[in-house]
């Protein structure tokens, strides 16, 4: 299958700090790719570059036929965001809106759906993440795990072709982590293309079709789930040695 995301020799620096140094990898349509690595290895930055939250310095990224390079325009980014959803570590729900309003906001204003259409659609994605009864609750009334599931539903309501997950369970306890991972697993089963930055090694191994191990701003090793059991480099061996 042709790749839906293609990073080609991508570099990014913040001042004198070179966060990404020639990163290349592909994501096949319908697949799940997990990016793992130490804090500071550049994995979150790589993910943020994929949907244009960070501008790259050199190289090229192709996402759903959108081409990102160092001088991408605002209009291009907006077109990209119509196709790509992202879920953040800190949920980033809109605290002044109810769960339902959070989900309906973009479909109504961006996709120009009618109120009833957006309402129906929002209820449907909420059901998908198991929170149908929370439609009128405010984010602050929900647990972290529930908020994160709402954030996933909010992204889903825009019917993205690709979903990005940036350490979405890092702020949650094991029980809440489990409920979020379950939702992500069901999305993967439905054939959603997903790229996730994660510290959940077991999840990466079980669900991801491909794992990308990043180290010092480079792709150090990539492969299937078996890669974690038989690391080729000392860096990955040390990394998983502490985890599994």
């Amino acid at each position: 299958m042709s790749p839906i995301v293609k990073l080609n020799n991508v570099s990014k620096s913040f001042g004198s700090l070179h966060v990404l140094q020639g990163v290349s990898f592909d994501v096949a349509a319908g697949s799940v790719v997990a990016i793992i690595g130490r804090s500071g290895s550049g994995k979150s930055t790589a993910l943020r570059c994929i949907n244009g939250l960070e501008k790259i310095n050199s190289g090229e990224i192709t996402v759903c036929n959108h081409h990102l390079h160092h001088d991408v325009t605002r209009a291009q980014l907006r077109a990209l965001h119509l196709d790509v959803g992202i879920v953040f570590q800190s949920y980033n729900l809109f605290p002044h809106l109810t769960v339902g309003q959070n989900i309906m906001l973009a479909p109504r204003w961006v996709r120009k759906q009618s109120k009833s259409e957006a309402h129906e659609h929002a209820a449907e994605v909420l059901r998908k993440v198991g929170l149908a009864e929370k439609f009128d609750a405010y984010p602050e009334q929900l647990s972290g795990g529930q908020q994160q599931r709402v954030a996933i539903a909010r992204s889903l309501a825009m019917e993205p072709k690709l979903m990005l997950f940036d350490e979405v369970t890092s702020a949650l306890d094991p029980e809440l982590t489990g409920e979020v991972l379950k939702v992500m697993e069901s999305l993967a089963r439905d054939g959603m293309t997903m790229v996730l930055v994660t510290h959940e090694m077991a999840f990466a191994k079980g669900v991801a079709d491909k794992i990308v191990f990043m180290h010092q701003g480079r792709v150090w090793e990539e492969g299937g789930g078996e890669m974690l059991s038989a690391p080729q480099t000392p860096e990955l061996r040390q990394f998983v040695g502490n985890g599994l």
Binding site: R74, R78, H81, N92, F94, A106, V110, R154
Partner: peptide
């Protein structure tokens, strides 16, 4: 700032981000 980012990633127009979020 993360609220701006979240709004941006939902493809809201800059003016919509500002007034709605």
């Amino acid at each position: 700032k993360t609220q701006w980012e979240a709004a941006e990633c939902l493809a809201l127009h800059p003016v919509q981000r500002f007034w709605l979020v």
